[in-house]
Simulated scan of single mutants.
Amino acid sequence: MPLRDEAYEPLEWEDRVIDQQTGDVLVPGTPVNEVNLNRMESGILTSHLDVGLAALAALQLAAATQQEMEKLKNQRILQGEATITANQSNGYFRDFEPFIEISPPGLPQINTPNYDVILTPTVSDDLGRVGDLVVYDKTQNGFKVKMTGSAMVVVFIWTLINPRV
């Protein structure tokens, strides 16, 4: 019986050939005995184990591929809501334009800074005074949004779209 560390070498089986006229054995043939049969069983078992390991490796690869696809799908479009609250001013001037830093949940964006962000204001103390909402400083783990208008509070929905993921 072959050892587990040895590679399996197939045995070339031969028929026993006898001369019909003389009765002499021309080819002794491969003996059907315990050694040869156990060797054959060991080869069959080894091939089943190899097929099982290959199937297990294929399943693991498929699971890893599926997980990677889910990761990429979850990076393609993200959405959330944020609020910018302005600082108090003297009624005419502000020291700076109010902004907020947004860190989308999940994994870092792999296509930085080439992703798009769409902003949709939903609530404000005065929608006419929101001005523009501007996205800037896009990084792998987030971006900033500033408000150029004079509203004190604006709530908006942000949608991050990363089409090249």
Rank of each mutant, 00 (worst) to 15 (best):
T159V: 12
E9A: 11
L3Y: 09
E34Y: 05
N87I: 01
D132E: 15
I84Y: 00
Y92E: 08
R4E: 04
Q109V: 09
L119I: 02
A151E: 02
A55V: 15
T46W: 06
R4N: 07
D132S: 15
F99Q: 09
G43H: 10
F143T: 00
V123W: 08
T159F: 01
G80L: 01
T46H: 05
E6Q: 15
N162V: 00
P28M: 05
Q20E: 14
E101K: 13
K144G: 00
L107E: 14
R39I: 01
Q60V: 03
I18Q: 12
G91T: 07
L127S: 14
L59W: 10
L72T: 14
P98F: 00
I77A: 04
D95V: 12
L56K: 10
T112V: 13
D19R: 06
K144N: 04
T139S: 15
L59R: 15
E14F: 11
L133V: 14
R164C: 08
D24Q: 14
R4M: 02
L37R: 00
T139D: 05
V35A: 12
E68G: 10
L56I: 07
T22A: 06
T83K: 02
P31T: 06
P121W: 01
D126L: 04
M147P: 08
A62E: 13
K138P: 13
V130M: 01
P28K: 13
Y92H: 08
L133M: 11
E81N: 08
L78S: 09
S150T: 12
K146S: 12
T120S: 11
L133W: 12
Q88I: 04
D95P: 03
V130A: 07
G43C: 10
V117M: 03
S103E: 15
G29E: 03
V130Q: 04
P121I: 05
G106I: 09
T30I: 11
D95F: 08
F156A: 03
T112P: 07
Y92A: 10
R94Y: 03
W158G: 02
L49G: 00
S124T: 01
A54L: 10
K73C: 14
D19Y: 01
I118R: 07
L59F: 07
I44H: 04
L72S: 14
R164I: 06
M152R: 10
M40F: 15
F99I: 00
E12R: 15
S47R: 05
R94E: 06
W13H: 03
T122P: 01
W158H: 05
V135S: 06
L11C: 02
E101V: 13
E101S: 12
D19K: 05
K146H: 08
T30H: 08
Q79W: 02
E70V: 13
L26R: 09
I100C: 01
E14S: 13
F143I: 02
L107V: 11
P104T: 12
